[in-house]
Lab assay of single mutants.
Amino acid sequence: TIEDAIKKLLKLAQKGQPYTFGDFTVTSEEEAKKLAKWLKKQL
C-alpha cells in the first residue's frame, strides 16, 4: 500500500539512503516527509 511505501521511505531516509519512488529521488528525511505529505494528498 501507499502507507507501507511511506513507512519504508521514511526508514530509508533516516539511514541516509537515497530512495527512488516513481519520478522522485529522496535523499533526506526532510524530502521524504514532503513526499509523504504529497502522497497522502493523492489518496
Rank of each mutant, 00 (worst) to 15 (best):
T1E: 05
T1C: 14
T1A: 10
I2E: 01
I2V: 09
I2C: 14
E3N: 05
E3L: 14
D4A: 12
D4M: 09
A5S: 04
A5P: 01
I6V: 03
I6E: 00
I6Y: 04
I6M: 06
I6T: 00
I6F: 07
K7F: 07
K7Y: 07
K7W: 11
L9K: 00
L9P: 00
L10N: 01
L10C: 11
L10Q: 02
L10A: 02
L10M: 09
L10V: 04
L10F: 07
K11N: 07
K11I: 12
K11A: 13
L12T: 03
L12C: 15
L12Q: 03
L12M: 09
L12E: 02
L12G: 02
A13K: 02
A13C: 15
Q14E: 09
Q14Y: 11
K15M: 13
K15H: 08
K15P: 03
K15R: 11
K15N: 10
K15V: 08
G16D: 08
G16K: 03
G16S: 05
G16Q: 05
Q17V: 15
Q17D: 09
Q17R: 04
Q17Y: 15
P18A: 05
P18E: 07
Y19E: 03
Y19V: 10
Y19T: 05
Y19L: 09
T20F: 13
F21Q: 02
F21G: 02
D23C: 15
D23N: 11
F24E: 01
F24N: 01
T25I: 14
T25G: 05
T25S: 06
V26D: 01
V26N: 04
V26P: 03
T27A: 06
S28G: 04
E29G: 08
E29K: 08
E29V: 13
E29R: 09
E29C: 15
E29M: 14
E30M: 09
E30N: 08
E31G: 04
E31Q: 12
A32I: 05
A32R: 03
A32K: 02
K33G: 03
K33D: 06
K33R: 13
K34F: 09
K34I: 07
K34C: 15
K34S: 05
L35T: 00
A36R: 07
A36E: 03
A36I: 14
A36K: 04
A36T: 04
A36W: 14
K37Q: 11
K37M: 11
K37L: 13
K37I: 12
W38Y: 04
W38D: 00
W38I: 02
W38C: 07
W38A: 01
L39Q: 00
L39I: 06
L39W: 05
K40L: 14
K40Y: 14
K40M: 14
K40P: 01
K40A: 13
K40F: 13
K40C: 15
K41G: 05
K41S: 09
K41P: 01
K41F: 08
K41L: 09
Q42A: 11
Q42G: 05
L43R: 03
L43G: 02
L43S: 03
L43I: 08
